[in-house]
Design a protein around this nucleic acid. Structure first.
Lengths: 199, 199, 199, 199
DNA sequence: TATGAATGAGTTTTCATTCAT
DNA sequence: GATGAATGAAAACTCATTCAT
């Protein structure tokens, strides 16, 4: 039954991630439970209160984020491309919404949790490395600090209903990335993918 | 006695704006009433339910936003400068937070309210005008649409506790504005105001 | 409406006293509210949680107990008679049940609350005075300390269903009082009232 | 494997006795199971519901009580001494707490269970015999009925935290026993054991 | 057979909204 | 008109009991 339990736990965290994103961190626990296909009791067995569930969600997201940063750094041909991929990944994950929601609730424990600490460290190390390398390559403006890149990781926008949230985020991140680059193509072609082609 | 009533109303809207910003749109009505120095009963006399209070808040903010846009357009020496001032004003007002919170609740009525409609129209007209003029002036990249500027109006970030929220927002908007500009200074000097100096 | 509210508050405390006595300190809050003829919300407005209601009950009981002790001391012809009346009053109020229930929950705050402190002081002063005087009169055994009388204040028993709880308590207290007296009637007549005639 | 099962059962009843005494009869089943070193499932295999566990606890206590009464009657030199020992034994076992808790829950079945019936019978027979003999010996007041002794079996008190529960109970029982005796030493010496020395 | 995971009914608690004063 | 008390529906949370492993 260990296998079952683990599967349930995973489903709960997955459902929580979805519901938190869709309906905010105040969604009824029962809805999350329903989304995970379990009873409330099961949810509460694993996560004694709402905060601990938010916590688990945050861990999952941060872990995933750290992975993503490492992959980007490893796979992309240069630092600037890695940074682009990383910031787009942050946007896709709606990092800003998560961070804003978590901070006021879990302030105290955020610093102390070793798991979280480690993921954060990984991420901030890589941001620093990517930033430095991209500047050294001459691809990125030298007057933007890693702390500022940290801010950009959490950019959010309001998406009007006649647009897809993902698409809107992508456009905004592209503009932001353009704000970070040094050169500017002599003839910037129209369109998202053109503008954000990282090299 | 009419004066009293009006003063109450204004205090309530002011308190609501503060509380909505600080604690989200789910803050207990009683807290808002306390913040306004009135009883809940009085609050409900003016605003029959939470939505109508959010509504009033939105109107106030939008009206203020439209004023701000007009002033920028009127007072700034060129379109690009006006656009900069306008987007910075949006950021200062945390427009993104307001919009995100209002939309899901008031979706239906948002289109129909004439007051809101008018402010929205003013704003979007001015955005279009500023964008077109800035492009014509050669100050702004031609491949960014007014709709994209609309997205940028609602940019939000998560501010870590070791930084002022206002300062962080300013930095991010500066980077965004840099993403919108055509030329890039050959030697961008360090510092926020230098980078984003609108001219 | 202050009058209404006060009446409601009193009714709630009264209902709580009854329900706590009848069904223990775990009775559903809703039942207490129903007993008081109010909604749960009203109950929670006055008493934010169960403990604060228990607390209020304890205050009421202790205040009443202090009054009772003072009345006994003032009205009875001698100290022994006052002590008898006092201990019977404690038994009638089921002081033991109350004390046992309150202690584990409210341990911390019990010492600090000034209201409670004052009633306790009144009671323990009077117990000491009654004990000393009754011994001086030769009515009470000299080898029983005030602290031991304090224990006797909280005597409880289990009453089988074929007997009235009050009657059973009275019999037991009579026996206890006999254990405290010095002399013994040469010819103790049968029956409760005979045995416990205080002089 | 039968031995295992029996050991489990015994551990559960033992743990139940402890937890019921410490935390009342509402203590979570899981806690009892943990105290017994088994899973809840095992507990429920032996005792289909909470009542049946209370039941088993009651049986164990009553059996033990009957043994104790018989031993006292057999070993003590006279009836009064036996009664003293018996009532002290009841106090030590906190019979009052057990009885109060069991009665409201198991009312219906209490009369019918043959095992319980038999222990009860043994006890009440012995109480009657001890009472009659002690009166005949002139050691006990003739105006106290066996039913009243039955009440005294369940005496409980609230023990303030600066005193041992056992010690407090002993003092109270001593006073009660003094209330039952005929003669009174002309010069009652101080101290618990002196006062209650049964002979 | 032992285990502990899952379930869901029952309680507690909160708060938007109504209403008596 | 203002006030804050009352209400009750909704959400959080607990735990007895069942059941899959």
């Amino acid at each position: 039954m260990r296998a079952d339990a683990q599967r349930n736990r995973d489903q709960i965290v997955a459902a929580a991630q979805i519901h938190f994103r869709e309906s905010g961190f105040d969604v009824p626990m029962e809805e999350i439970a329903r989304g995970a296909g379990v009873g409330v009791g099961t949810l509460y067995r694993r996560f004694p209160d709402r905060d601990s569930l938010i916590w688990a969600t945050a861990q999952a997201v941060l872990r995933d984020l750290a992975d993503m940063a490492e992959t980007a750094w490893r796979e992309e041909p240069d630092a600037w491309a890695a940074l682009c991929r990383f910031l787009r990944g942050c946007a896709e994950r709606r990092l800003g919404a998560l961070a804003s929601a978590i901070e006021p609730r879990l302030h105290a424990s955020i610093q102390s949790d070793p798991e979280l600490r480690s993921s954060r460290q990984t991420v901030s190390d890589l941001v620093e490395r990517m930033t430095a390398a991209a500047k050294a390559d001459g691809a990125m403006r030298p007057d933007v600090s890693p702390a500022e890149v940290g801010l950009l990781m959490t950019v959010r926008i309001y998406t009007p209903s006649d647009m897809s949230d993902d698409q809107a985020m992508r456009r905004v991140v592209d503009i932001v990335l353009d704000g970070l680059r040094t050169g500017r193509e002599p003839d910037p072609r129209k369109a998202t993918q053109a503008r954000s082609g990282c090299r």
